[in-house]
Every structure is written in C-alpha cells, then in structure tokens.
Design a protein around this nucleic acid. Structure first.
Lengths: 121, 121
DNA sequence: CTGAACCCTCAACATATGTTTAAGTCAAGC
DNA sequence: GCTTGACTTAAACATATGTTGAGGGTTCAG
C-alpha cells in the first residue's frame, strides 16, 4: 500500500489543474476534493486533487453539476487506484450518454410523428 | 406556404411546454423564443414556441447554455419545417456527442498511461 | 529569525438561470 | 361596458458557480 501524501497547497493544485485558487477552495467546500489541514490551518491536498478537478471541469461540460460530480467522486478512496478511477469514469460516461440519448430520443420522436413538436412529454 | 399564427399567450406556452410563465418570459428575453406584441403590448407566440422550450430544456441537460441554445435556434425560421428542425437537431446532437467524446477521451487518456492523471492538458 | 509570499475566513461582487412580488394595464365573457 | 383574470415591467430574491478584496495569520528560504 502506498502512503498518501498530502503535500499540495491551494496554489499548487490550482497550477496543476488550471483553475484559480478560489476555485480550488470552492471545490473543496463542495466535496469535489478533500484536504487535510496543517497546524496553521492551511489546506494540503494529495495528488488526486488536481486530477479530480480536471475531470470535474470536463464533466461540467456535459451538464453535470458540482453536486452531482461530488456524489460520483464520493466513490473514490484516498489515493485512488486505476480500478477506482475506472468505475468513476464509467459512471460519468454513462451519465453523459444517458443525457445525450434523452436528447436524441426527444428530437427523433419530434420528427418521427411528422407533427414536429406535438409529442407527449 | 402556411400562415404563421401568433395566437399563444404566455400562459398558453407555459402550459404547453411545462415551464412557469416567468420562464417563458425569460426565454423570450434571451432569444430562445420570439413573440409579437398585441396593441396592448401583450406577447403572442406561435406553435413553435412551446416546442423550442421543450427542446431547450433537454439541451440544457447536456450542458448547453441558454445563450448557446438561442444561437442554434437562430437558424430556425418562423414556422419551422421538418428540415429546419432536422438541421437544428443535428447541431444539438453533434454538440452533445462532441462534449461526451471529450469526456471519454480525457478519461481514456487518464487510464491509458497508467499514470492515472498526469496527462498533459 | 525574519521577510516575502502564500494562506486563512468572510463578505461582497459577478454571471447564469429562474421565481416572486408590487403596481398598474389589457382582454374577453357576460 | 364592466368585471375578473391574465398581462405588463421592474426590482428583489434564490440557487449555482465562481472571483475579488480586506484584514489578519503561516511558512519557508536565506
């Protein structure tokens, strides 16, 4: 087992993930990432923090909210392994495809009837 | 050619589309739907308004903003025909699939390297 | 051990997406 | 033609997603 190192500061994670420090604090507040605190009350993150944020940004683009993303990431242990990420990836992709499928189904039904838009919702 | 009838009031469109009257006004302000005005300054919408709103709601679920949806709907003429809706549908689906593809690519690259998340952005 | 650079919280601001409410106007049936 | 319900605008409120700034504390390299 590897020892999880909580060595990254807010600005470290911000630089690694490409978002502003304020966003790093925001994502921590909302459970997308987690931190331990130093004696002086400063946040320290592990390697996975920047990763989680980068994945979160892409997931937001397919319509997932920060809350939904945090819920999905709740399945990730500290120091996540490939299998852990794999399960999360599957969940995210399934959700994205499900939403796209709903869009396609709606548009297809709309055309299918020739009624353009009188379909039942 | 069919004569486009602008006969629907705000509450008519709200009822047809399943959103609140305030949302109907909001979507008009943001260009998702368009209205003519009566002599007394009340909004009147045509048949396509409720349809546009229902499509917009589904499109929002895949991450499109109201602004983006309005831009895509700008290609719809008054009294849109099946072909017009078809082009809009294609644009919406392409965008949704593009975003899902970006998510998949990101997650696949992440796993692929075995580095979990040290991929270049 | 000290100073520069970074961190803390909290509050205000900003944008997107709506809803609610107040004060006043319009429309449609009787 | 009047009444009643729906409409108008504008502003305030609410939630999501952040950013900025003030006032003060922490860390770490030298």
């Amino acid at each position: 087992m590897s020892i999880t190192a909580f060595t990254r500061s807010v600005s470290d994670v911000a630089a690694e993930s490409g978002v502003a420090p304020s966003a790093v604090r925001f994502y921590e507040q909302h459970g997308v990432i987690t931190a331990i605190r130093t004696q002086g009350d400063q946040r320290r993150f592990d390697d996975s923090a920047a990763c989680r944020i980068r994945v979160a940004k892409v997931a937001q683009r397919v319509g997932l909210t920060v809350r939904e993303i945090a819920e999905i990431f709740a399945a990730l242990p500290a120091d996540p392994q490939p299998d852990d990420w794999g399960r999360v990836a599957t969940t995210l992709i399934d959700e994205a495809e499900s939403r796209t499928a709903a869009l396609k189904a709606y548009l297809t039904d709309m055309r299918g009837g020739g009624r353009l838009c009188e379909i039942e919702v």
